[in-house]
Simulated assay, not measured.
Amino acid sequence: MSNDSSLLALLTTTPLFAVGLTLTAYLVGNGLFQRLKRPSWLPAILIAALLLAGALALIGLPYATYQQGATWLTVLLGPATVALGMPLYQQLPRIVELWRPLAICLPIAAALAAFYSLAIAWLLGSSNTILASIAAKSVTAPIAIGITEQLGGTVALLLGALLITGVITIPCVSLAARFLHIDDERLIGFALGLNGHAIGTVRAFELSPTAGAFASLGMSLTGIFTAVLLPLAWRLLGMGG
């Protein structure tokens, strides 16, 4: 047992172990996702997260130790988000056509995305720390982490909220589009990106490049809108204490 503990301690001294474990979980999760014929309710990232959590529990590696090593992957979230500007540029003429309804829809939808989760958590008696951790749950991770730290929340709880939000958004948008008879890929993509951040955007790109571009737009604008106004609203409501 001591030899195993020593080996684990040695492996975790380098970030390569956490990075390798994360990439392995994702590759296995993506493989299972393909074998299951790509169910919308069970995305590859959720499978990978469950596999990774199981692996950490099995080897007895504390989450804090894993997170310290996986920081290298977190750094890549920013460039990956910026890279979504390319499909936005390619679809720019189609985006310009809808700028008025998008401009009206965005602030309402982004505000509601933060409000309903906070309202439910508040009614259940959650602390300010929990409220601060889930307030940015519909924003892409690089921006959401900064907002959460500014509000005084917990990043680990935020990441769980991000995963749950992204996974639930996909079937909800699909069902809503079917119920409302909406087949416009631009609207569906925008809704996926606005509510489901990166996970919804990945799903939108699976539908079509147009849906993916509008999902990128929704995700980006929601991030900007929330980053500017949520901390301000938080202070005005006296939640900072």
Rank of each mutant, 00 (worst) to 15 (best):
L52E: 04
L159E: 06
I104C: 07
F115M: 10
N3I: 09
S216A: 13
F214W: 15
F190P: 00
A176P: 07
T129R: 03
P107H: 10
L157R: 01
A57F: 01
T13L: 11
A119T: 11
G152E: 08
G29V: 11
T65H: 10
T65Y: 09
F205K: 01
L157A: 11
Y66G: 10
Q34Y: 00
S2C: 14
V228D: 02
T22N: 03
A70P: 09
G125Y: 10
P15V: 06
N3A: 15
A57I: 06
T169M: 02
H181F: 04
R203N: 13
A18V: 03
G240K: 02
R100V: 06
W122E: 05
L8T: 14
L162T: 04
V202R: 11
A113K: 12
I120M: 05
Q68F: 06
C105M: 11
A55E: 06
P107I: 12
G152Y: 01
E149W: 02
P79M: 13
G241Y: 00
L32I: 15
G85P: 03
L98F: 03
A111V: 07
G78Q: 09
Q91V: 08
S6Y: 07
Y66P: 12
L118C: 15
E185L: 01
N195A: 15
G85S: 05
F115P: 04
G212L: 10
S216F: 12
R100N: 07
G166E: 02
L237T: 03
L112M: 13
L112P: 05
P101W: 14
A211V: 01
L192A: 04
E149M: 10
G212H: 07
N195D: 01
A111G: 15
L84E: 08
Y116A: 00
M219A: 05
P231V: 07
F33N: 04
A119K: 14
I134W: 00
L207M: 14
V228G: 11
A9Q: 14
P39D: 10
P93W: 01
L221F: 09
D184W: 14
S174K: 13
V155K: 00
F190E: 12
Q67C: 02
M239L: 06
P93V: 08
P107A: 12
G212T: 12
A161W: 02
T148D: 10
Q67G: 07
G146I: 09
L23G: 00
L46F: 13
L76E: 02
V82N: 12
G189T: 00
R35S: 09
P43A: 10
R203S: 09
L123D: 13
V139M: 15
A198F: 04
G166F: 10
N30H: 15
L11M: 08
T14P: 00
G78A: 07
G29M: 10
S5I: 12
G125E: 14
G152A: 14
P87G: 00
N30K: 13
F190K: 09
P231S: 13
V75F: 12
L180N: 04
L124C: 15
A132E: 07
I168S: 03
T154Q: 15
P171G: 12
L27R: 11
A132Y: 01
A48D: 00
T65C: 05
W72N: 06
K137I: 11
L7I: 15
G238N: 13
I188R: 08
V19R: 12
L16V: 08
L7Q: 11
D184Q: 03
A9E: 11
T140C: 05
H197K: 05
L61P: 03
R203E: 05
L27I: 14
G153H: 00
R38S: 13
L236S: 05
I170T: 14
F190N: 03
L52N: 03
